[in-house]
Design a protein around this nucleic acid. Structure first.
Length: 362
DNA sequence: AACTCGGGGGG
DNA sequence: CCCCCAGAGTT
């Protein structure tokens, strides 16, 4: 094993000291670093999944004001929780989090379980989040391997395995276990991530400023820019969508709630559908409304605007229309709301864009 | 192992 | 334009 050879020639104690001393001196002042409450550490780690620190900070602060304890989140209205997560993406994270927090309240006496097997059994808690919370909140020597850590360790030990493959994470977990600073696992894990975020960055690492340059095999060989190895995923799909903002004659707006599973689950939106190629958008939207809601609608001839929204795995091109609906028949997952009420519901960003545009027309 | 699931910031 | 970010669940 090449990584073992690289570890063998390392002075692990010196590496730990150089890394943790740098971290303690240079670490960023982040809201969750003021907290010891395992619940708050946990929330921060869920928010930080696939999401940058700068994006998370305002969401974390608002979330902690609104749901400061496990009991507060466990007892909260799901609509309020979704609204607090609006715009942060990967919405299953917050539904799983609330579900897991309820489980902690009911089965663990409101105490975040310290036993690895118990904590990892909770919804939304995977290998990374499990290790992160157990090490940061409870000081346990568990690896917390995220994208930063794989990049840092791949360079430190010149590991050439493809980090895009799920099975590769275990290689890095074993390496981190060998390198673990058992006197302070919290600082050690956070230091690896901090180094990846600040110094050991993806395209142009600042090796000349790196506190562990002397320990880095990639720097010694001059191959730091070739690591980590990561195969790129295939290109995404493009979907042509039509959406319509329908107003009743007394000025109320039709909104609907998305299905409980799948893309943007449980978020609110304006009526919309995929437009098959070569169809007339307003005709198809009118018949869609009539079959879906049992009420006739008149969709304006002119397209109001077009909106492009890029997801990680597909792109929506949305033709946006406005129109009039002749009646208010509410179904299970739809509502007619006043204009000033629209923004109190949690919408996907694409439909926030739609509303912002249409509101500006009036 | 491959696919799904959001959104935004930086080079 | 591209990449990728304090990843997890499902199939």
């Amino acid at each position: 094993m090449s990584e073992n050879r690289a570890i063998q020639k390392m002075n692990i104690t010196k590496f730990q000291q150089d890394l943790v001393n740098w971290y303690e001196a240079e670490k960023r002042d982040l809201p969750w670093r003021h907290e010891r409450d395992p619940y708050k550490i946990w929330v921060s780690e869920i928010m930080l999944q696939q999401t940058r620190v700068d994006t998370v900070i305002p969401y974390f602060n608002r979330f902690m004001e609104q749901f400061p304890t496990i009991d507060a989140l466990a007892g909260a209205d799901e609509e309020d929780v979704m609204k607090a997560w609006e715009g942060l993406g990967y919405y299953s994270r917050v539904r799983n989090l609330q579900s897991a927090v309820k489980e902690v309240a009911e089965s663990y006496g409101g105490i975040v379980p310290e036993k690895k097997e118990d904590f990892l059994s909770l919804k939304g808690v995977g290998p990374y989040t499990g290790g992160a919370v157990l090490s940061i909140a409870y000081g346990l020597p568990e690896p917390a391997v995220d994208g930063n850590v794989m990049r840092v360790i791949s360079r430190l030990l010149t590991i050439w395995d493809d980090i895009a493959k799920p099975s590769t994470r275990k290689i890095f977990e074993r390496a981190v276990e060998e390198l673990m600073y058992k006197e302070n696992p919290s600082s050690f894990n956070q230091a690896l991530m901090e180094l990846g975020a600040i110094i050991c960055t993806p395209t142009s690492p600042s090796c000349l400023l790196c506190p562990v340059q002397n320990h880095c095999q990639a720097f010694e060989e001059g191959v730091q820019r070739e690591l980590p190895v990561k195969t790129k995923k295939k290109s995404d799909k493009k979907v042509h969508m039509g959406a319509v903002v329908l107003t009743t004659n007394d000025g109320r707006i039709l909104i609907e709630k998305r299905p409980e599973s799948g893309l943007l689950a449980n978020l609110w939106q304006f009526p919309n559908m995929e437009l098959p190629a070569g169809t007339n958008p307003r005709r198809i939207l009118e018949s869609f409304i009539e079959t879906e809601y049992g009420v006739k609608a008149k969709v304006n001839t002119e397209k109001a605007t077009e909106i492009t929204h890029v997801f990680s795995h597909l792109t929506w091109n949305i033709d946006v229309y406005t129109g009039i609906i002749e009646g208010e028949v509410e179904k299970k997952r739809s509502k007619f709301v006043k204009e000033e009420e629209v923004e109190s519901f949690a919408f996907s960003v694409s439909h926030q864009k739609i509303w912002k545009y249409v509101k500006g027309l009036g």
